[in-house]
Write a protein that binds this DNA or RNA. Sequence first.
DNA 1: TGTACATCAGTGAACGCGCGTTCACTGATGTAC
DNA 2: TGTACATCAGTGAACGCGCGTTCACTGATGTAC
Lengths: 207, 207
Amino acid sequence: MLVIVSTSRTRNRRGEGSRLRAEILNAATQLVMDNGPEALTLRAIARRAGITAPSIYTHFAGLDAVREAVVANGFQMLANYLQRAVEGHTDPVARLRAVCYAYVAFGREHPNEYAVLFTHEGQLVGESADLTVDTMHGAEAFGFLLDGIDQCVASGVSRSTSPAHDATALWVAVHGFVALRMAVPNFPWPPDAGLLDTLIDRVALLT
Amino acid sequence: MLVIVSTSRTRNRRGEGSRLRAEILNAATQLVMDNGPEALTLRAIARRAGITAPSIYTHFAGLDAVREAVVANGFQMLANYLQRAVEGHTDPVARLRAVCYAYVAFGREHPNEYAVLFTHEGQLVGESADLTVDTMHGAEAFGFLLDGIDQCVASGVSRSTSPAHDATALWVAVHGFVALRMAVPNFPWPPDAGLLDTLIDRVALLT
DNA sequence: TGTACATCAGTGAACGCGCGTTCACTGATGTAC
DNA sequence: TGTACATCAGTGAACGCGCGTTCACTGATGTAC
């Protein structure tokens, strides 16, 4: 394939070099979304951003650093999805459902991005063992599930006696749904909503 | 790293050339298990098997064909795990639990192999859209879950009114458990058994 | 039983490719005087 | 206001590497006569 970059970049003015960082990150994210995690190479990013590969080193230590940024970016996108979903509802059950639907929607609309978030080579989150739920990638997403169950319990519509435990189980369920549906697309899947409601109702102990 | 292959292969005798196919598949499987899916290259397989890379073409069309065989091999390994787990129990609930435990154990003991089974680049299963649960990879594993729930229903210990639906939900749950635990190891996970029992009891509607 | 020959199971050198990374450099932009 | 200069934002050529794939070949093994 021959790619002709017709619009030649105008370089950033002095002091604005850090703008390129955002352009690189954007190009890398688009690259993952369009072509999958394996397509993420420094040269491909550079082509996409309309720069040369060595320029990336001004803003990132290397490919792994770019990937880390793409992952962080992706988790932020996911959190935004969930935030927007929550905003539309006040009823606790509707909120919890909306969060789970939005989670699955994100996975289905951005499968490659979702894959790069949850497919580690080696260790996605880093080698440090003393990360907690607060500093970990995905903490915000988990927070939405936990809040959702908490509110259902407070309103008496969930029988959960351990919201943290059950939010974890629910995260497992929605992640499993996104991941398995992606991995085994030819399975005779029932409609999304039915299976997802089953999982939400039962795992979150909705009455 | 310098690898010295001290034991030089004795080539197979005439008519037994197909033995090399098994050696290649074995080397490829070991390679994935030890070094992850990205480590699977024709050259690496050849080094591991003690042959030269072009020899692989006698038995496989290319890297993708070897990977397909590794995947098929892995699903067979998984099915064997579940089969062995089932054999130890007669009580339907104990059987169902044993299947789920064995599924998770397989994922935890062979994370790289599990990843290659359920991480598709493009499409793991193939592009054909008319695969059903019978011809699909993972069909055997799903069958164990379905049988497990069926037997629980027959014994009156599951309230499920749609075993196929609920077996699907259960597959989602156990897959989610294996995959998310692998992807987010630094999450403050509760003990395996507790979370897994929660998922099994609720999703399979055990009384 | 002996020998010429066909076949089979692999080898080894070579290729072009895209990759990460290095290094010296260029040329526009702002600044000091 | 004009000019010399430092700085900044990138470029472009080059490197060594491992990869998939090709091709002509080798040498042991079985077979036909």
